[in-house]
Design a protein around this nucleic acid. Structure first.
Length: 579
RNA sequence: GGCUUCGUAGCUCAGUAGGAUAGAGCGGCGGUUUCCUAAACCGCGUCUUGCCCGCGUUCGAAUCGCGGCGGGGCCA
């Protein structure tokens, strides 16, 4: 990476300066503390290394430090200058051409992390109830989670994606009972959900169960032949299982459509049935952090920083959500993962201390659990926030995808910092074209492909009707990509410094985004990269009479298209060749 | 009341592990096409000498600390 290349030069120079006694009271230098930045003013250079932080130890003014250090730098062909405590570098032509060569060599692997300390990570996200369709908020976790998985893998981690199905508990009974009512309605019986506010809470009155009821009747047509009270011939469990499986299928179909691929769906019910929940409760008892009070069983989580103790077994003997969560997280570690990353909605933030407490009580390092807390999604239509009432027909994620498409959904859901509430304006995302960054980026890719197409295809002059032969054949173009050399590439640099630097920046993007578990940075990057290309396109003609120059620029276009496609692949947003 | 998160241009948001004159997109205004995709490009404005307010740490704060104010979320 260029930034490391220059940083290394400066750090070496600092060591030499220290050894030569030029840095005042500084007697040794620890590498790794200096920031590499972009100069505020691009005329200063491409990279700036700020040595001001050494001032405190050296007891010399930043400007004087920079001046001393610079004497020890091996500048090679690169321009540099010193302003205050900043040492600015401008990458030389050979260095930039080398970057392009690296892209040409690595292709779809360009940007992949190198020499990283790889971890086995289990990434858990969405983890919804199987009691209904996904709502818009789930879309944010779906998009962000899958992008994060792609990113961490590309960086070099081993990533296992898991969806925890909350299929144990009273919500499944609720679901079964609700389906039963819908089935009776479909059979012509005059019944409805209770109107009483309190009683209604025991049902899912959304009309999404109507098609489920139809399918149910089809499936059990033998039993549900005609009489309305046939419905009671089937056990409630039959209704529960049918509805659950149906909704799980609906959810998974949508995930497929959104290019979200889980390695595993982990059923909470199976966790209970396997005896793991009781097993870990016993383990907790051994830790001595369990006590009985008011007929319930409590976990003394306050001993580990939680603000109060938590119930793990209720008076009626049933487990709480927390109990299953404890077992689930311990089980993940027992399955051999180094690190667990969970994406949770901000409404669950209170669970972090208690789950971490349980891990600690069980003897695990709680830092192996990283929880990414995501702020929620506001649905906005034409700038007005839409309150999603419980009984109103809510807008589902599927509705959204139908409206705006997979690419736009994924991009918009990923493009904001996880810490900020996302306003998803449906009208904006679907109607606009120029306000939509997805199109902007995809257009750049299509444009680049179009240039390459023009270079390798014969053209027909519309006026004369004569065929104008292509500049290169497809085979020659492929050969050019394989064999492009430094000398050819240097030709393009004069016109495309900024674009090349941005391409080079992709490697650093992967490192910092993976480190910070951030994905919105990738969305910003593709927009910046596309902007540099559009700008280059408008100022510089690629296909000209100058064959050598044309070839060098074609190679540049190819590297751009490749890097952009790599970034879009992480986002799982398509990179169209034509638009 | 406690915890958590945010508060930067008209709007939506960046600001890279405190650092050089505070940025982008959109919206607004004005330009660019006999030529590789105008879904594009180029130029102009606006953020109280300033990043909700105040105090503090620092050579240096939008960034860190404390105390407020305001919005979202969770809990009591």
């Amino acid at each position: 990476m260029l930034r490391d290349y220059f940083l290394n030069k400066v750090e070496k120079a600092i060591e030499d300066a220290v050894n030569a006694g030029k840095l005042g009271e500084m007697t040794e230098y620890q590498r790794g503390s200096l920031p590499v930045e972009k100069p505020k003013n691009p005329e200063f250079g491409d990279f700036a290394i700020n040595v001001s932080s050494l001032a405190r130890v050296a007891k010399i003014a930043p400007a004087a430090i920079a001046a001393s250090v610079v004497d020890f730098i091996d500048k090679e062909e690169n321009d540099y200058n010193v302003i205050g405590g900043f040492i600015n570098f401008k990458a030389g032509e050979n260095l930039l051409a080398d970057s392009l060569i690296e892209i040409l060599r690595k292709k779809e692997n360009y940007g992949r992390g190198e020499n990283v300390k790889s971890e086995k990570i289990i990434l858990e996200y969405i983890s919804a109830n199987p009691t209904g369709p996904f709502h818009i908020g789930h879309g944010r976790w779906a998009a962000m989670g899958s992008v994060l998985a792609n990113l961490l893998k590309f960086y070099g981690h081993e990533v296992y994606q898991e969806f925890y199905i909350n299929d144990a508990g009273s919500q499944i009974q609720k679901l079964g009972n609700s389906l039963k009512i819908r089935v009776r309605q479909e059979l012509g019986e005059d019944v409805d959900f209770p109107t009483d506010e309190e009683e209604r809470k025991n049902y899912y009155p959304g009309d999404y169960l109507v098609p489920v009821a139809k399918a149910f009747i089809e499936e059990y047509s033998e039993t549900l032949r005609s009489a309305q009270n046939d419905v009671d011939k089937l056990d409630l469990q039959v209704y529960c299982d049918f509805a659950k499986e149906y909704e799980e299928k609906v959810q998974r179909d949508l995930l497929d459509r959104l290019h979200v691929k889980f390695d595993n769906f982990y059923s909470e019910l199976s966790l209970h049935n396997s005896g793991k929940v009781s097993y870990y409760v016993e383990k907790l008892k051994e830790s001595g952090k369990i006590y009985e009070k008011d007929g319930a069983t409590w976990f003394k989580s306050s001993d580990y920083g939680d603000d109060q103790d938590r119930v793990i077994k209720k008076v009626d003997g049933s487990n709480t959500y927390l109990t299953a969560d404890i077992a689930y997280h311990a089980d993940k570690l027992e399955r051999g993962f180094d690190r667990m990353i969970d994406i949770w909605g901000a409404d669950h933030h209170g669970y972090i201390p208690r789950v971490k407490a349980s891990l600690e009580a069980l003897g695990y390092n709680p830092e192996r659990l990283e929880v990414l807390l995501g702020q929620l999604v506001n649905l906005v239509i034409n700038g007005n926030e839409v309150r999603m009432g419980k009984r109103k027909n809510m807008v589902t994620l599927e509705d959204l995808v139908d409206e705006v498409g997979v690419d736009a959904t994924r991009f918009w859901m990923s493009m904001r910092n996880i810490d900020t509430t996302l306003d998803f304006d449906i009208e904006l995302a679907k109607t606009n074209s120029d306000e939509n960054p997805v199109f902007y980026v995809q257009y750049a890719h299509a444009r680049a492909c179009s240039i390459i197409r023009n270079a390798v295809n014969d053209k027909v002059d519309t006026e004369t009707g004569k065929t104008i032969p292509a500049i290169l054949s497809v085979g020659e173009f492929d050969k050019l990509i394989e064999s492009a050399d430094l000398k050819t590439l240097v030709l393009t640099i004069k016109d495309a410094r900024k674009l090349i630097l941005k391409l080079e920046d992709f490697k650093n993007l992967i490192v910092t985004s993976a480190r910070d578990r951030q994905v919105y940075t990738i969305c910003r990057y593709v927009q910046d990269l596309a902007a540099e290309f559009h700008s280059f396109y408008n100022s510089t003609r690629v296909i000209t009479d100058d064959i050598e120059l044309t070839k060098s620029r074609l190679v540049l276009v190819w590297t751009f298209k490749t890097v952009l496609a790599n970034a879009l692949r992480l986002l799982a947003v398509s990179a169209p060749e034509k638009m």
